[in-house]
Design a binder for these strands. Structure first.
Lengths: 194, 194
DNA sequence: TCGAATATTGTCAACTTTGACAATCTATAG
DNA sequence: CTATAGATTGTCAAAGTTGACAATATTCGA
């Protein structure tokens, strides 16, 4: 007899709105009222479905980490092992859609906010460790001649290039750098053959 | 007959305090009162020596960009041309002092805040362009066999590795990655010889 | 000593943000 | 139709933040 729950959808919409607000006004610069406006709801809706300010930030962090983890595991599920590396590189250097870029920037925001959100700090470290480890394992599989140490080195470097490049592109730097970044990354991988 | 001006010193102290607050509370999460407390002054002092909130942020941005520019030009002045590359690499992968790290993180904060501070955005792009161009020129000089395009590619990639690595180290990721990053960067430079 | 420029402190009203709670509305199963 | 769980809206007081300005204190040179 109860009315059907809107909780899931409302929470998603609110977190989406929150992310857009963070880009516009900053993490601490965003008021609950602004989030509500952005989502075309009232502030009390936030209170009802999520809670107070801390709850909102926690929910955002959890969703963000979860999305990244899913992106890492689910998308890879159907890829044959020998194509994993090229698939990963494609993923790292594709021109991202607006939503993915926004997520990446929110990640950057959270990184610089590690003092205030030690929970986010821990989860971000875990996430990036997992990304690097996963990529390094792919490299080991694809380049049996290379040492494990070499694969980890290259994996870390390529992730650094990819992440910083994405931030630079978002900032508005010369787009020709994008091809440079990818080219160097692929050269680094090729160097594992010898 | 006037009293001697404290303006220069006060402004520096206030901006230092502002930077520390940004790390603790975030760019928009920092109140003028907190900055004043951190600097052990009163809020009216900020008003007197710098102005309102916007003035404070502008002053911070200007000083940050200026400091980076000076670090780039002045330090290089006494370096003989053939040592510029190794000096630059040392600089990029040295374990930074706390103050330099803080500046780098504030830069990250400003990057993610580009929508609110288009002025900062423009200056950051210029700054990074200058850094990459300068490094690429050093590479061209040191590696005459390499093409210009190769030098720019490598310069951009090494800057990406260095910047992202610094952020990762600050975040608290495994310190052993630091050596990996530097090693890959130096291998990339060495590849310009062939 | 005195005057002038500057430092420093204090106070005020307007505005914003937040948390809490009350009250009303509405869809759905029985 | 009706009861009920949940959706949605509204209102308040408390606390925090800011901009503006008044007022006082201090130093330096003449």
């Amino acid at each position: 007899m109860p009315r059907k729950s809107m909780a899931k959808q409302r929470r998603e919409e609110l977190l989406d709105a929150f992310e857009r607000c963070i880009i516009k006004y900053g993490l601490e610069g965003t008021s609950l009222e602004q989030v509500a406006d952005e989502a075309q709801m009232t502030r009390s809706i936030i209170r009802h479905y999520i809670g107070n300010r801390d709850d909102l930030v926690s929910a955002l962090i959890d969703r963000l980490i979860r999305q990244y983890a899913e992106q890492l595991t689910e998308n890879y599920a159907d890829i044959p092992p020998e194509q994993m590396v090229s698939y990963a590189v494609d993923n790292m250097f594709s021109q991202k859609d607006a939503l993915s870029v926004r997520e990446k920037i929110i990640i950057d925001v959270l990184m610089t906010a590690k003092e205030r959100y030690p929970d986010a700090k821990k989860k971000l470290i875990q996430m990036y460790d997992a990304v690097i480890q996963s990529f390094a394992s792919d490299l080991e599989r694809q380049y049996p001649n290379a040492t494990q140490a070499q694969c980890w080195q290259i994996a870390y470097a390529v992730v650094c290039i990819s992440e910083m490049n994405e931030t630079f592109m978002w900032l508005g730097m010369n787009p020709r750098y994008h091809a440079d970044a990818r080219q160097v990354a692929e050269n680094l991988l090729a160097s594992l053959n010898s």
